[in-house]
Every structure is written in structure tokens, then in C-alpha cells.
């Protein structure tokens, strides 16, 4: 018998008694009186920076030293200028020297500062991980992950992620180090 059928047959024979899937619609998770305030707090807690954008995005970005000093930058946000055109890059390895990347998020989650970022099938999602510094532009916020998944339309095919702050590790004696493999800083720009 093929491995697949043998494993499935064994699992069927193991026959754990039927258990109902709990009804999550009756579950009332925590919500916050001030969504924006809670989101900003969470972003800071996970090691990020949070900026509420009143004027132009480009002006806010210019205030970030890592953006201002970036030699090579990528922007996936309309209206924000980068100097590397991602569509012209055929091999993601060429993106290793990107200093700054600006990406749009579909929404942010107040309870944990995470932003839902999809790649819309773009070939070069590697830029989000290779870049030295990252900025995320987001407008909509939800309270918690339950609301988040209610909202998400999972792509039939493709990549998507919750990203919460900069890359980090505490693998050496529990000491928190920001900038493990991925972005060394993460600024979340909340537009209205």
C-alpha cells in the first residue's frame, strides 16, 4: 500500500471519537476603547516605531534617518518614491543590498501590532526580508486576530504574512537583539 493510503488507514483505524468544532462566533475576545492608541502601543512593544501620518507620506518617511540615508530603496506604495524598480529585478538575490523598503499592509491588528501583508503574487517578496530597514503603510485597524481572520480572504495561491516589528532574537542568554536576519528597524505609518 502507498504511504498515503497506509497512513490514512491507520489514522482512520485509530478513530478518536467525534468531537464538535467549537462555535467561535459566540466567543467575545477583548476589544479596546481606542484602537489607534492600542495599536501604536503594541507596535512599540514589539520593537517597532509607530507614526500617525497627518500630511504626506513622503514627508513622514523623509524624517526617518534610515530612509533619508538609504542608498538603494524600494517602494511598493503608490505615491512613495524608491530608486530601485522591483519589476526590473529578475533575481531576488540582486536585492541583497536594499537599504530601505516601504510596503503597504491591508490592515493592522491592535492587540499585537502585526500588519497583514500580502504579495499579490509578486515574485520578489524577498525584498521584505532582505532589506536592512522596513516601513509599513497601513490605514485600517482591527482589534484582535479573530477580527483579522474574519476579514482576510486567503489567497488561493501566494504568500501573505503577519509582520510584527523588526526581526529579532533572544537566543543568546535571553538578551533581546533587534535585527536578527531581517529588517533592523520597522516603522509603521498609520494613514487616515
Amino acid at each position: 500500500m502507498a504511504a498515503r493510503d497506509e497512513i490514512l488507514a491507520k489514522l482512520r483505524a485509530a478513530a478518536a471519537p467525534a468531537v464538535e468544532l467549537p462555535d467561535l462566533s459566540r466567543f467575545a475576545p477583548v476589544t479596546y476603547p481606542d484602537l489607534r492608541e492600542r495599536f501604536a502601543k503594541s507596535v512599540i512593544e514589539v520593537g517597532g516605531r509607530c507614526v500617525f501620518v497627518a500630511g504626506s507620506l513622503q514627508d513622514e518617511l523623509a524624517k526617518i534617518p534610515e530612509f533619508a540615508n538609504a542608498r538603494r530603496s524600494v517602494s511598493l506604495v503608490p505615491g512613495v518614491e524608491g530608486n530601485v524598480d522591483l519589476t526590473a529585478v529578475s533575481d531576488p538575490h540582486e536585492l541583497n543590498d536594499i537599504d530601505f523598503c516601504v510596503v503597504p499592509a491591508e490592515f493592522g491588528v491592535a492587540e499585537n501590532g502585526a500588519c497583514w501583508i500580502t504579495d499579490h503574487g509578486r515574485a520578489n517578496r524577498a525584498v521584505c526580508f532582505l532589506t536592512q530597514h522596513l516601513a509599513i503603510v497601513v490605514r485600517d485597524l482591527v482589534h484582535n486576530l479573530h477580527q483579522a481572520y474574519e476579514r482576510i480572504q486567503m489567497p488561493g495561491r501566494g504568500f501573505a504574512m503577519f509582520l510584527s516589528g523588526p526581526s529579532k532574537t533572544a537566543d543568546i542568554e535571553q538578551a533581546l537583539v533587534i535585527g536578527a536576519h531581517g529588517a533592523r528597524s520597522c516603522t509603521v505609518l498609520v494613514t487616515s
Binding site: S42, E45, V46, V109, E111, N112, G113, A114, G121, R122, A123, R125, L145, M154, P155, G156, R157, G158, F159, A160, M161, F162, L163, S164, G165, P166, S167, K168, G182
Partner: peptide, 16 residues
């Protein structure tokens, strides 16, 4: 932590 930094959802391979 309230969530891991990267929570990645893979549906199939990357293009190519």
C-alpha cells in the same frame, strides 16, 4: 510576545 514577528502563510510555491 503577543505574536511572533513573522507569521507567514504559504499557499503554493513562489512564482517560478
Amino acid at each position: 510576545q503577543p505574536i511572533t514577528t513573522y507569521t507567514s502563510h504559504f499557499h503554493g510555491p513562489k512564482p517560478g
